[in-house]
Amino acid sequence: MPNASVNMMLTPKPAAKKRKKKGTLKARATAQKKQVKRQPVVELSYRPRTLQDDAYILQLTRSQLGTIHEQAFGQPFPDQQFLQYIQSGAPTIVIEQKGKPIGYYSYLIGPDAKMHVSAMVIDPAHQSSGIGKRVMAKLEEDAIAQGVRTLEVFVQENNAPSLAFTRSLGFQEVFRIEPNTIGFQKRIGN
């Protein structure tokens, strides 16, 4: 009988504590999961390319797009033609993290309020971390500030990761250029 009275007196309180603890443990587990999923936002900086950046830009582009170019066109990546393009004055922006380059983008703006994004390449060590989407969001903001109403990109049809990325940003396929290029556009601004 003494056990019965003890149980009656303690049952309500321990049950309440257990529920509270379960809720607290569950809340802690959820918070920990959120912390694990949340990656720290890494500061990026952007600056115009300099002549000293050209070797890095060429090497990064060749390593990321050389095989795709060769498969699409049956020719090696055109190093000299690419260097002439980036040295032509086309806006080319180096993306940096903690003062070190991690990628770049380049574009041309036409008289029809259209920006052709010639390239956006991120070092593989920084891909799939959201940096590409952040870079494209910044590029879109800058384009709107410059009066651009349409963004345009060309992607080789054998470049599945770039096709998926481009579509995830809301670009729509609008034309094809033989033999293997898909033209995408996205309306921006008002």
Rank of each mutant, 00 (worst) to 15 (best):
E96Y: 03
G99E: 11
A72L: 11
V135I: 07
G89H: 04
M136G: 03
R167L: 11
S129V: 05
T166G: 00
R187N: 12
Q75H: 06
Y85G: 04
H126W: 14
K18L: 15
L58Y: 07
M120E: 13
N3F: 09
Q64W: 03
G23Q: 14
A113S: 12
A160C: 00
S88K: 04
R134C: 05
S88N: 08
E178G: 06
A27W: 02
I122R: 02
Q35T: 09
A15I: 15
V42H: 04
F73S: 03
R38N: 12
K18C: 10
Q156P: 00
L83S: 02
A137I: 08
D142S: 04
Y46W: 11
K13P: 09
D53M: 04
A119M: 12
E152H: 01
G74A: 06
N180V: 03
R62K: 13
V135T: 05
L108M: 05
Q87H: 10
I93A: 05
S45Q: 09
P40R: 07
R134T: 13
K18D: 01
G183Y: 09
N159Y: 14
A113D: 11
V135Y: 05
I95F: 09
Q185K: 14
Q84F: 11
M120D: 07
A27Y: 08
Q71F: 01
A113Y: 08
S128P: 04
A125F: 13
R187A: 11
I177S: 14
A31D: 09
R47N: 01
V41L: 15
R62D: 08
F154K: 07
I177V: 09
I188R: 02
N159C: 06
L44M: 11
I102W: 10
N190P: 15
I86T: 02
K98R: 14
P124V: 08
T61H: 09
V36M: 07
R38D: 07
G147I: 03
Q52N: 14
Q172A: 11
P48N: 15
F165P: 01
Q52C: 02
E43S: 12
R134V: 10
P101Q: 06
P12L: 07
R47A: 02
L58V: 05
L25Y: 05
V6R: 08
R149D: 06
Q81D: 14
L44S: 08
L25E: 15
S118C: 11
Y104V: 02
V6D: 15
G189F: 11
Q127K: 03
G183W: 06
R38C: 08
A113T: 04
G132E: 11
Y104N: 00
L10R: 02
G110F: 10
K13H: 15
G74S: 10
K98Q: 15
K18H: 14
N3M: 13
S63H: 04
K33L: 13
K138Q: 14
L44H: 09
I182Y: 01
E140H: 02
K133N: 10
V6G: 00
P179S: 04
E70A: 13
S45Y: 09
R134W: 05
I95S: 01
Q146R: 14
F175C: 05
F73P: 04
I93P: 03
M136D: 07
R149F: 07
H126C: 12
K18F: 15
A31G: 09
